[in-house]
């Protein structure tokens, strides 16, 4: 479930990146790299788990499923927070700089 949620996040971010790539002011690429990197790594984890559990891998207990989904959503939330911090620090549109040096 964590892998599935991360893959969906990666696909959505890549589609948004492709649509806005010409301007690239929102640094959506940061999210793409993060989610694709994690998706590849969790895919490997899933393959090893499948090799161990076989078909049982696809029928997890409800409690595990909920925990994994909760983890997946938390991972997406963490990714978004990291992206926001990078965006505010790099400040490609100069919004933070403008707000900080604004004369009242």
């Amino acid at each position: 479930m964590t892998l599935l949620i991360t893959v969906f996040a990666a696909v959505i971010c890549t589609a948004i990146w492709y649509r806005t790539a010409q301007k690239s002011e929102m640094m959506v690429g940061v999210l793409c790299w993060m989610f694709w990197g994690a998706s590849i790594m969790w895919f490997v984890d899933a393959v090893f788990e499948y090799a161990e559990l076989k078909a049982e891998y696809f029928t997890p207990a409800l409690e595990d499923l909920i925990n994994d989904a909760f983890l997946g959503l938390s991972v997406v939330a963490l990714g978004l927070v990291i992206w926001l911090v990078v965006l505010l620090i790099k400040d490609p549109k100069g919004v933070v700089k403008k707000a900080l040096f604004k004369k009242k």
Partner: peptide, 20 residues
């Protein structure tokens, strides 16, 4: 840099999973 970004991104989120 593409490889660096993939590795750092993935490692960071996986580290969070291990904390979890």
């Amino acid at each position: 840099k593409w490889l660096r970004n993939l590795l750092w991104g993935g490692s960071l989120l996986l580290a969070f999973e291990h904390v979890w």
